[in-house]
């Protein structure tokens, strides 16, 4: 027993055990249970294998949901990455105390509970009392059906997600920027590189891994988003803003078809698995290259 406990690997395992149990109970078990549910019939009395997945793939509305989920996630993540990159650079050049103030202010959207801030946005877009429309009317411009027309409704969803998630990108990029050695910029300047050159040949290569990881992390969270769509549009108009999570909720909880709801939500898994594979492979490859250099 004494020898057993003296083995470092055993001690390490025992120390990790609480975490392993936590992950097992709160992540692995629910995931396996969701897979099990997705393979049952509507009344959950019969095993139907991949029947629910096959059924979903034949439905035109589900094709729309897949398209919208990808559109929402990809556009929102791209916008967040771009804005976060710009903000991080702007922040980086603000000196000392002022930077802390601005950093704190810009982090506010990310720290406010999403459900509350989305409700705030919903009031701004509200059909009857939209503050934006009030402003437009004051300026003599025509009002906009923010949540009532497909294009505008999708734009609003992406806008709110971008507003919420940009600070995360900004803070990650800022941390990465601060870790780039100043000497590299000085060397680039000596070699005649301008601002663009420094960005292209110093900043971006040094930040590539953190950009990839941040994009991957955000992609996962954005794909699984529920709150924004649920509060802003509930999938309307005409199902044109439904994404996987809201459609799964409507199927599983509201319409009493839990297996179909589980199958819908599991469609995120292969998409995210493929994205994770390529992004993480890129990160590993660059790590190897840097280690070799």
């Amino acid at each position: 027993m004494r020898r057993f406990l003296q083995r470092r690997s055993t001690v390490a395992f025992l120390m990790c055990l609480p975490l392993i149990l936590l992950i097992g109970g709160l992540v692995v078990y629910p995931a396996l249970y969701a897979i099990y549910l997705a393979m049952l019939n509507k009344r959950m009395t019969q095993f139907v294998g991949l029947g629910n997945f096959e059924f979903l793939l034949r439905r035109a509305t589900f094709h729309l949901v897949m398209f919208q989920s990808c559109l929402f996630a990809v556009t929102a993540v791209a916008a967040k990455a771009l804005l976060g990159f710009l903000l991080a650079h702007l922040m980086h050049v603000i000196p000392g105390r002022h930077q802390r103030i601005w950093r704190g202010l810009l982090l506010i959207p990310w720290v406010v509970p999403l459900a509350l801030s989305t409700l705030g946005w919903w009031w701004l877009f509200d059909p009857s009392y939209s503050a934006f429309n009030w402003l437009l009317a004051k300026l003599g411009a025509p009002t906009v059906p923010w949540l009532g027309a497909t294009g505008w409704a999708r734009f609003c969803m992406i806008l709110v997600n971008t507003w919420y998630g940009t600070p995360f990108f900004m803070i990650m990029y800022l941390a990465a920027l601060k870790s780039v050695p100043e000497q590299l910029f000085e060397a680039a300047a000596i070699d005649g590189a301008g601002a663009w050159g420094k960005l292209r040949f110093v900043t971006l290569p040094m930040m590539r891994n953190i950009i990839s990881i941040t994009v991957l992390f955000s992609l996962i969270v954005t794909f699984a988003d529920f709150t924004i769509v649920r509060i802003l549009t509930n999938g309307g108009p005409r199902d044109t803003t439904h994404i996987f999570a809201t459609y799964a909720f409507q199927m599983g909880i509201q319409s009493g078809d839990i297996p179909l709801g589980a199958a819908t939500s599991l469609f995120m898994l292969p998409i995210l698995a493929v994205a994770s594979f390529f992004i993480l492979r890129g990160v590993s490859r660059r790590d190897r290259e840097m280690a070799a250099a």
């Binding site: 059909p127 009857s128 923010w146 949540l147 009532g148 549009t233 509930n234 108009p237």
Partner: peptide, 14 residues
């Protein structure tokens, strides 16, 4: 109203 397509259960009340 043009926004009836985005009505929820509170919109008509309002």
């Amino acid at each position: 109203p043009p926004d009836v397509y985005s009505y929820d259960d509170a919109s008509n009340n309002r």
